[in-house]
Design a protein around this nucleic acid. Structure first.
Lengths: 194, 194
DNA sequence: TCCCTTTTTATGACTAAGTCATAGTAGTTG
DNA sequence: CAACTACTATGACTTAGTCATAAAAAGGGA
C-alpha cells in the first residue's frame, strides 16, 4: 500500500502542477498524460477540490474582466526596450487603468518601483539576480495614460553586487529616481534552505 | 419588411454590444434580455459569426495565460488585516504563482515593496497620501506559497509628512524592512497640473 | 382578403465535458 | 482468505451548445 499511496500522492502533485501550468486541460487530456483513466482523474479532482474545466476557464476569464476595475492589478512591469547587461537598459511602461489610486488619476508608487526594480534586475550582468536593498524617491506624481521611460545605469560593481541607478521620466520630467543594490546568485543558493 | 429588418439589425447591434460588455453571457440570458427565443439568438450568432460561450470564455482565459508568462503579473498587494491610521497596521499577502522569478520559486522584490508601500500609504493618517521616498532592504528571499505578514508603524510625523516603518516576516523570519516617507495631499494638489 | 416572403420559434437528434452514484476489478497485506 | 485501498467501468443526468428540419407569425403587396 505504501508505493500505491505514494504513487497516488505523486499523481496528485503532478496533477496540481499540470493544472497550474495549464488550467485549460480537460480530464481526458490529463488522464492520457498521467496514464490513468478519466474516472481516476475525476476522483482526484474531487478529493483535491479542483474545479472542472468550465470553472477554471471562467475564473481565468473573469479575472480579465475585473482586472481593470479593481484597485491594484498590475499587468506588466514594463517593456524592456534595451538591455545591455552590466551597463544599462531602458524600459517603457504605460500607466494604465488599475495602477491608479482609487478615484484619482495618480499612479501608485509601487508600479514605478516595480518597473525600476525589474529593469535593475535585468541589467545586472548575471543569469539570476535579486534586489537586496533600494533607496527610491518619488519625485513627481504620475497620471493615468502617461508613458514612463525608465533608464538604468550600472554605476558600481564588485563580485556579487551591482549598484544600479534608475531614473524614470515622463517626457522630460523626472518622476522617479532610485538606487538598487542587486546581488547575483548561484542556482544552489536559490534552491538552498527550503 | 423595412422595420422588421431594422429591428433585426438593431437586435444584432444590441447583441454585439452586450457580448462586448460581458462575453460570459449564455444564449439563454441573451434571449431573455432581448425578448426573443433562444433559437433566434443562435441564428443571430450564426449569421454574425459570434462564437459560443465556451469559445468566448476560453479566449479570454488564454489572454490571461499569455499575460502571465510575460514579465510579471501582480494580483494583489495584500489584504489589510488591521489599520490604525496614524499609528500602524498589518497586512497579509500570500506569495502566489506569477509573482515569482521565472523558473525559480523566489518572489520578485517589488511584490514585497508593493505590499509594504500599500500598507504604508494606508496607515498614513490622511484621506489621500502618496509615497515620496523609501529606503528598503530585502533581507531574505521569499518562496512561492509563503505567507507574508507586514507590520507597519508610524514612527514620525510632521505636518504633511509621515515616516512609516514596515517590517515583513514569513513566520518569524524577517524578510523585508523598509522606511517610507509618505506625504499627504489635498484634493486640489492631486488634481492640479494636468 | 389571400398569397408570399421573411422572420421567428419549435422540435428532435447529437456533442463535449462534465456531475453523481453504484458496481466491479486488481493488488497488497495482515 | 478476507479486507482494504486504489482504480476502472457503467449508466443516468446536466449544461450549453451544434445542425437540420418543420411549423407558426408577421409583414408586405395586388
Amino acid at each position: 500500500m505504501k508505493e500505491k499511496r505514494l504513487s497516488k500522492n505523486l499523481r496528485h502533485q503532478e496533477l496540481v502542477k499540470r493544472l497550474d501550468g495549464n488550467p485549460l486541460l480537460t480530464d481526458e487530456e490529463l488522464a492520457k498524460g498521467l496514464g490513468v483513466s478519466i474516472q481516476t482523474i475525476r476522483l482526484d479532482r474531487l478529493t483535491l477540490g479542483l474545479p472542472e474545466l468550465k470553472e477554471r476557464t471562467k475564473s481565468l476569464a473573469s479575472r480579465v474582466l475585473s482586472a481593470d476595475s479593481y484597485p491594484a492589478s498590475l499587468e506588466v512591469v514594463g517593456e524592456l526596450l534595451l538591455c545591455e547587461p552590466g551597463i544599462g537598459g531602458l524600459s517603457r511602461l504605460v500607466a494604465g487603468e488599475g495602477m491608479r489610486l482609487t478615484r484619482y488619476n495618480v499612479i501608485r508608487g509601487h508600479f514605478l518601483f516595480a518597473q525600476a526594480n525589474s529593469l535593475a534586475v535585468a541589467v545586472a550582468d548575471a543569469p539570476h539576480a535579486l534586489t537586496a536593498s533600494a533607496q527610491v524617491d518619488f519625485i513627481h506624481p504620475v497620471k493615468l495614460g502617461q508613458v514612463l521611460l525608465a533608464r538604468a545605469r550600472v554605476i558600481g560593481k564588485e563580485r556579487r553586487k551591482s549598484i544600479v541607478e534608475v531614473i524614470t521620466k515622463v517626457k522630460e520630467q523626472e518622476v522617479f529616481r532610485g538606487k538598487f543594490l542587486v546581488i547575483t546568485l548561484e542556482e544552489n543558493q536559490l534552491m538552498a534552505e527550503e
